[in-house]
C-alpha cells in the first residue's frame, strides 16, 4: 500500500504547522517591511512633492518680488533721471546767469575803465589844450587869455538866436535874484564890467551880478539866471576831441559820451 494513513495525517498536521510558521516568520514580517517601505517612499514622495510645490511657490514669490523690484527700480531711476535733468538745467541756468553777471560786471568794469580813461584823456587833453591855447594866445596877443575868453563869451552872447534870446530875456526879466557868472579864474573888474554891459545890452537885464570862481569849468565862463544858462568853454572843443577819441576806440557811443560830458546841456540855452 503506497498510502500510509498515519503519515498522511502526520503530514497534514505538519503542513498546517508549517503554514502557521511561514505566516508567523516569513510572510507577515516581509509584507510588513514592504508595506512600511512603500509607505515611507510614499511619504517621501509626498514630502518631495510638498517641497517642490513650496519651492515653486517661493520661486513664484521671488519672481513676483523681483518684478516688483524691477518696477520700483525703473520708477526710481526715471525719477532720479528727471531730478538730475532738472538739477542740471538749474545748475546750467545758474552758471549761465553767473557767467552773464560776470560778463556784465566785466563789461561794466571795462566801461568804467574806459570812461576813466576817457576822462583822464579829456582832462589831460584839456590841460594840454588849455596850456597850448594859453601859450598860443599869449604868444599871438598882448591881452591875456582871460580877456579873450571874456570876449569870446560876449560874442557868444551876442550870437544867440532870436528864439533863444527871447526866452533868455524873459528869464532875465523874471529873475528874482542876481545873475550868476562863473568862471574858471577870478575875473578882473574891467572884464566883469564888460560882461555886465554886454548882458544888459543883449538880454535887457536890470538886476545885479554875482561872480564866482568854479575850477570845475574847463576854461570857460557861464552866465546863468532863473534856470537858463549861456556859456562858452574850452570843454566844447574838448568834447569834440573826446568824441573823436571815442570813435577811434569804437567802444562808447557818441550820444553816451555826450551825455556823460554834458549832463546839464539839455537845459542849456545855447545847445
Amino acid at each position: 500500500m503506497l498510502i500510509d494513513w498515519f503519515t498522511v495525517i502526520a503530514q497534514v498536521v505538519n503542513f498546517l504547522i508549517l503554514v502557521w510558521l511561514m505566516k508567523r516568520f516569513l510572510y507577515a514580517p516581509i509584507l510588513s517591511a514592504i508595506d512600511a517601505r512603500e509607505k515611507r517612499i510614499a511619504a517621501e514622495l509626498a514630502d518631495a512633492e510638498a517641497k517642490q510645490s513650496e519651492a515653486q511657490r517661493e520661486r513664484d514669490e521671488f519672481k513676483h518680488k523681483n518684478e516688483e523690484f524691477a518696477l520700483q527700480r525703473k520708477a526710481m531711476l526715471s525719477t532720479a533721471t528727471l531730478e538730475v535733468q532738472t538739477e542740471r538745467q538749474r545748475l546750467l541756468e545758474e552758471a549761465r546767469k553767473a557767467s552773464e553777471d560776470l560778463r556784465a560786471g566785466q563789461e561794466e568794469a571795462m566801461r568804467t575803465d574806459f570812461r576813466n580813461l576817457g576822462d583822464e584823456i579829456m582832462r589831460r587833453s584839456r590841460d594840454e589844450v588849455f596850456a597850448i591855447a594859453r601859450k598860443t594866445l599869449d604868444d599871438l596877443a598882448t591881452e591875456s587869455l582871460e580877456e579873450h575868453m571874456v570876449e569870446a563869451f560876449i560874442r557868444r552872447c551876442r550870437a544867440v538866436g532870436d528864439v533863444e534870446k527871447t526866452a533868455l530875456q524873459a528869464a532875465f526879466k523874471t529873475a528874482a535874484g542876481p545873475a550868476l557868472v562863473r568862471s574858471t579864474f577870478p575875473l578882473p573888474a574891467a572884464q566883469r564890467k564888460a560882461i555886465e554891459l554886454a548882458t544888459r545890452e543883449v538880454f535887457a537885464f536890470e538886476g545885479q551880478f554875482q561872480f564866482e570862481t568854479s575850477p570845475d569849468l574847463v576854461s570857460g565862463i557861464t552866465l546863468s539866471v532863473n534856470g537858463y544858462e549861456v556859456a562858452w568853454s574850452i570843454a566844447d572843443y574838448l568834447l569834440a576831441l573826446k568824441q573823436n577819441v571815442g570813435d577811434l576806440l569804437s567802444i562808447q557811443s557818441p550820444a553816451e559820451e555826450q551825455k556823460e560830458l554834458h549832463p546839464e546841456d539839455g537845459a542849456n540855452g545855447h545847445g
Binding site: 498510502i3 494513513w5 503519515t7
Partner: peptide, 10 residues
C-alpha cells in the same frame, strides 16, 4: 511519498 501528496491534496 504518496502519503504526503495525498495529505497536501486533502
Amino acid at each position: 511519498s504518496l502519503s504526503t501528496t495525498v495529505a497536501l491534496a486533502l
